[in-house]
Amino acid sequence: MSGLKIKKDDLVQVIAGKDKGKQGKVLRALPSENKVVVEGINIAKKAVRPTQQNPQGSISSVEAPLHVSNVALIDPSTKKPTRVGYRVKDDGTKVRVARPSGKDLD
């Protein structure tokens, strides 16, 4: 089961870990690993090998994936973290719903 309730370009808040309380936009969703990459969160240092174009080499900062259980979607109406549910509309389309307010997220 790899259906994520969080998608690319969603605004999320980190609810556990070293970046707890920070908010950011989801850059990538990795459903097969149940992880998301969030802009400016979980920064890791990565060594870059020297090449012809960059003979010096360097150490760059990249966003590492976070487990999806450590982030919560921000409800656009209340601006607070919320749980996500689903509801099927009358025309048969499935939409994400904010649990506390019941408002559509899509």
Rank of each mutant, 00 (worst) to 15 (best):
E33F: 14
A44E: 11
V38Q: 09
K35T: 14
Q56L: 13
E63G: 03
Y86L: 10
K89I: 00
A29Q: 06
G17A: 00
E63V: 05
V48C: 01
V95I: 02
I43N: 12
P50T: 15
N54L: 11
I41D: 00
G92C: 08
N54M: 13
P100M: 04
R83I: 00
N70L: 01
N34S: 13
R49M: 13
D19C: 04
G24E: 12
K89W: 01
K103A: 13
A29W: 07
P81Y: 04
E39M: 09
A64H: 07
T93A: 04
D104P: 05
I15L: 06
L30G: 01
A98K: 03
G57A: 01
D75S: 08
K45G: 15
A64R: 12
K80S: 02
Q56W: 14
P65S: 02
S60V: 09
A64S: 13
V97Q: 03
L73A: 02
E63M: 05
G17K: 07
G17I: 03
G102H: 02
L73P: 03
H67R: 12
Q56C: 05
T93V: 04
Y86D: 07
N70M: 07
S101I: 13
V38L: 11
L27K: 12
G92A: 05
I59P: 00
K20L: 10
R49H: 14
V36T: 08
A47F: 11
K94C: 07
S60F: 00
E33I: 14
Y86R: 11
K35W: 08
D90Q: 11
G40S: 06
K20D: 09
V14S: 07
L27G: 10
V26K: 07
K79V: 05
K46T: 15
P55F: 10
P55L: 11
V84H: 05
K46F: 10
K25W: 12
V71A: 01
E33Y: 15
A47Y: 11
K25C: 15
K22W: 15
V14A: 04
H67E: 09
T78N: 00
I59T: 15
V48H: 02
R87I: 03
K46S: 15
Q52H: 09
P100C: 03
L66V: 02
V48P: 01
G102S: 09
V26M: 05
I59K: 06
R28M: 09
I41M: 00
G24R: 06
V14K: 09
P50M: 14
E39P: 00
G102K: 07
A16G: 06
R96Y: 01
L27V: 15
T51I: 02
Q53F: 01
K103G: 12
A98V: 09
S61P: 00
A72S: 11
V37C: 02
V48D: 08
